[in-house]
Amino acid sequence: MKDLLKNKTILIAGAGGLLGSRLVVGILSQGGNVIAADINVEETKKLLSELDANIAQSCLQVVPLDITNKNSIKEIFLKNPNIDGAVNATYPRNKSYGAHFFDVTPESFNENISLHLGSSFLFTQQCAAYFKTNKKEFSLVNISSIYGVVAPDFSIYENTSMTMSVEYAAIKSGLLHLNKYVVNYINDSKFRINAVSPGGLFDSQPKPFLEAYKKKTHGNGMLDSQDILGAILFLLSNQSRYVTGQNIIVDDGFSL
């Protein structure tokens, strides 16, 4: 469906990332206006230009955002009184993130929970505050994961140095319930929060992992970030007007 988001203004937090940058392009292609927010503005502009997004067009603005800073988030909302929805595609973490289970210290675990789940809470809170002030329809999409829904399959990491971090599982599962808490707390049909939980996204992972992962799916294997866009665009649009507190899993059967 063309022009799914015509005349809607969508805030993308983490617009310089693998998924966020493709979302910017996808929303623009559906007639939407985009506020592309990221901690590194220049790198974000460069990436969007590489994806053939004209950063000089009036329907796209690229702005700085520190997702862990309340004032940074509030400033965007204060400067933009006509935001219709938002997607949090950020992925803040410390340098120890991704360590194997027995190598994770309590300090590192707590810091990563604070950085990622804490900032997701902060962003969600400010979206809700923005809605309470403006009282216009608002749709927020938070990005969870299949590992927020099911336990990790550690067999797919054999013969690699990779693992599925314990922080990630705690963060992504917590995010799903945070969505339900907030949307029930606000209790207004005009304010919706949903999640999309992707399977693995291809990002040049080692071949043994890619092969093992593919065997757990129905044949596609790792997803491209483009494969996630349809679900997110649907949740931002009026086609999902009364869909709220839900989680759409996009994983080619991995979690079945």
Results as ranks from 00 to 15, higher is better:
3 D>R: 09
5 L>W: 05
6 K>C: 08
7 N>C: 05
10 I>K: 05
11 L>D: 03
12 I>D: 01
13 A>I: 02
16 G>M: 07
16 G>I: 05
17 G>V: 11
17 G>C: 09
18 L>I: 15
20 G>Q: 05
21 S>A: 14
22 R>F: 06
23 L>H: 00
23 L>D: 01
26 G>E: 06
30 Q>P: 02
31 G>E: 04
32 G>L: 05
34 V>T: 06
35 I>Q: 05
36 A>L: 09
37 A>L: 08
38 D>K: 03
39 I>P: 03
41 V>Y: 04
41 V>K: 08
44 T>D: 07
45 K>W: 08
45 K>T: 12
45 K>S: 13
46 K>Q: 14
48 L>K: 08
49 S>L: 11
51 L>I: 08
52 D>T: 13
53 A>I: 15
55 I>W: 09
56 A>G: 10
58 S>L: 10
59 C>K: 15
61 Q>A: 11
61 Q>P: 03
62 V>H: 07
64 P>K: 10
70 K>V: 13
70 K>A: 15
72 S>T: 09
72 S>C: 11
75 E>H: 11
80 N>K: 08
81 P>D: 12
84 D>M: 02
86 A>F: 03
90 T>D: 11
90 T>F: 10
95 K>F: 08
97 Y>T: 01
98 G>Y: 09
98 G>H: 09
99 A>F: 12
99 A>M: 11
101 F>H: 12
101 F>S: 12
104 V>P: 06
107 E>K: 12
109 F>K: 10
110 N>W: 09
110 N>A: 15
112 N>P: 01
113 I>Q: 07
115 L>R: 07
122 L>N: 02
128 A>R: 03
128 A>C: 08
130 Y>S: 03
131 F>L: 10
131 F>R: 04
132 K>N: 14
137 E>P: 09
138 F>D: 05
138 F>P: 04
142 N>I: 00
144 S>H: 01
147 Y>F: 15
149 V>D: 00
150 V>L: 03
154 F>R: 09
155 S>A: 12
156 I>K: 04
156 I>P: 02
157 Y>C: 14
158 E>P: 03
159 N>M: 09
160 T>P: 07
160 T>M: 10
160 T>N: 07
161 S>W: 06
168 Y>P: 06
169 A>W: 00
170 A>W: 03
173 S>V: 02
173 S>G: 10
175 L>C: 06
175 L>P: 04
176 L>N: 13
180 K>S: 06
181 Y>D: 10
183 V>M: 02
184 N>K: 13
188 D>K: 10
194 N>Q: 08
194 N>T: 02
194 N>C: 11
194 N>F: 04
199 G>C: 04
203 D>E: 14
203 D>Q: 12
204 S>T: 08
205 Q>T: 11
206 P>T: 10
207 K>N: 15
207 K>M: 14
213 Y>S: 01
216 K>G: 05
218 H>G: 12
218 H>L: 14
221 G>M: 07
221 G>E: 07
225 S>T: 14
226 Q>N: 15
227 D>Q: 02
228 I>A: 01
229 L>H: 01
230 G>C: 00
230 G>Y: 00
230 G>W: 00
231 A>L: 06
231 A>N: 05
233 L>N: 07
236 L>R: 03
236 L>Q: 02
239 Q>N: 13
239 Q>Y: 13
241 R>K: 15
242 Y>S: 13
249 I>R: 00
250 V>E: 01
256 L>S: 14
